[in-house]
Design a binder for these strands. Structure first.
Length: 344
RNA sequence: GCCGAGGUAGCUCAGUGGUAGAGCGAAGGACUGAAAAUCCUUGCGUCGCCAGUUCGAUCCUGGCCCUCGGCA
């Protein structure tokens, strides 16, 4: 079995040797859903002449607007030769471009995001990454070296009939370190590791890692206490329904998007889908959507809590003040971030 | 009022004569090409109340209380 592995165009893998240049500075607004990232991003993009790079795994989809929390009123607009997503004049990259039946991967996001960072920087603007998909953001700021094997549908299909135990055995045989470095109880992880080993002939655990940073990030998140965040989530869900979320789903259906399309598996779309199909009453679907969103927010918090580089602020004003200091501290090639180095 | 079913973890329920489990929820955690995904860890609760039988009852017997059906 042979396969075509994408050529070595991985970001950061090469570069001008010896030409020491400051890394592009990138502001990253992270944190759990409903904490206020989108609004803060818009505000800071105005104040600091920035452009936004979406780091939300669901806002990438076309037609999925209300329920994914895209800024209301933004849309694809022709700018010169090509179309770009604009919200009140602020360009958003990696937003609203993917057909709902397609999937995107971390590696693709990482690559596109870096291209966007470079373009924005070249035009003298500040790149602002905004989103709650922790893995995406980390892949960018820590320059993840992701094993270069795209998903292999036929391989995954072929392995479907195997039990987890069998997959684990196969994996350990070709990649003994997987025993302690891969979550052997998680079928997805095991399958992926096996996939990489199979198509490269080398152990998965030897191929994952991180390269030298290619950007100079500044991470910021708005701290909300538990009750407040939960309340914000509830209100957001209600506001989305009020704003026509259900009609949005119906419309997407008339466009031929099946219930099991990748974008349809987003929180709320699946719960409200059950209501639309007549499987449960509306109030139940809304309640489930709130609960699922909260569970998601907790997972995000688990992710972001451990990243010591994040500056947690209490409100937008504090965020702006902090960013102002960071922006004006330019030059001075900042020392490499400690936190990223001792994470392996 | 009569007949039937039932009262066990926050919820839905399983179960046994030797003081009890599952799913969901909740809390915490992981996370390198599906990430709004996927996965891991954590369960003493008066087993409705009272009395009896028994070495021992949540499980058997009797009474009581409550819930849900059906009949009046």
């Amino acid at each position: 079995m042979s396969v075509r592995v994408r050529a070595g165009n991985r970001p950061g893998s090469r570069g001008p040797v010896g030409t020491k240049r400051a890394l592009p500075r990138v502001l990253c607004i992270v944190g759990p859903t409903s904490s206020g990232k989108t609004l803060l991003g818009i505000r800071l993009s105005r104040v600091f002449d920035g452009e936004i790079i979406n780091a939300d795994a669901r806002q990438v989809f076309q037609e999925f607007d209300i329920g994914t929390g895209k800024p209301i009123g933004g849309k694809r607009t022709a700018v010169g030769a090509r179309k770009m997503y604009l919200f009140e004049g602020v360009p958003h990259y990696l937003m609203d471009f993917l057909p709902p039946t397609k999937t995107m991967t971390v590696a693709e996001w990482q690559e596109k995001a870096l291209v966007a960072v470079k373009g924005i920087t070249k035009r003298g603007k500040l790149p602002i990454v905004v989103g709650g998909t922790g893995l995406y953001i980390q892949s960018l700021i820590d320059n993840y070296r992701i094993p270069q094997v795209p998903p292999q549908p036929q391989f995954r299909k072929a392995m479907e009939s195997k039990s987890l135990d069998e997959l684990v055995k196969l994996l350990i045989r070709v990649d003994p370190d997987a025993e302690r470095l891969v979550d052997l109880k998680n079928p997805r992880r095991v399958l992926r590791a096996l996939e990489v080993a199979t198509f490269t002939g080398k152990p998965f655990t030897k191929q994952k890692g991180a390269s030298k940073p290619v950007i100079d990030p500044f991470l910021i998140a708005i701290m909300r206490d538990r009750d407040e965040l939960r309340e914000r989530i509830n209100l957001a869900v209600e506001a989305y329904v009020e704003a026509g979320w259900i009609d949005e789903i119906r419309k997407v259906r008339t466009l031929g998007i099946p219930w099991d399309a990748p974008a349809m598996t987003s929180i709320g779309y699946r719960e409200l889908g059950a209501y639309i199909r007549g499987e449960c009453p509306l109030d139940e679907a809304v309640k489930k959507t709130k609960d699922a969103t909260w569970q998601y927010a907790k997972r995000q918090l688990t992710w972001f809590k451990r990243d010591q580089r994040i500056h947690w602020v209490k409100d937008e004003d504090e965020a702006e003040a902090l960013v102002k200091k960071w922006v004006s501290s330019k030059k001075k090639n900042p020392p490499p971030h400690k936190a990223s180095a001792d994470r392996a």
